[in-house]
Amino acid sequence: MSKKKDAAKIIFESEKDVPIMPMSLGSMLFNKTGSWRNIRPEIRTADCIRCGICWKFCPDMSILVEEELPVVDYDFCKGCGICAEECPVKCIEMAEERK
């Protein structure tokens, strides 16, 4: 968390730049999966009971819990809706994606 490192895509200019050992050189953070989304979760923070269930069940690590309230990372949220379905007080709504 909070270690959103370099988000650049690695492109090899020539074959010489390719490492001999197949190993990972960078993270996948350049891939902004937020563009896959049709519906977006919106948290009504007034009703939130801070149970952490939305964070626990988010498959894309897109609910950030560094603050005292959960915050959605819209760069990576794929819009699956698990958070809205699992929220015990139903304070997350899936709204139409704004362009």
């Binding site: 968390m1 993270s27 996948m28 891939n31 999966t33 801070r50 952490g52 894309d60 690590m61 760069d75």
Partner: peptide, 20 residues
């Protein structure tokens, strides 16, 4: 927040999994 699991993440965002 009441978290029942550790906060450290070893799987990052931006992966190619389907929704849900």
């Amino acid at each position: 927040m009441k978290l029942t699991l550790p906060v450290e993440e070893y799987v990052g965002s931006g992966n190619l999994a389907c929704q849900g």
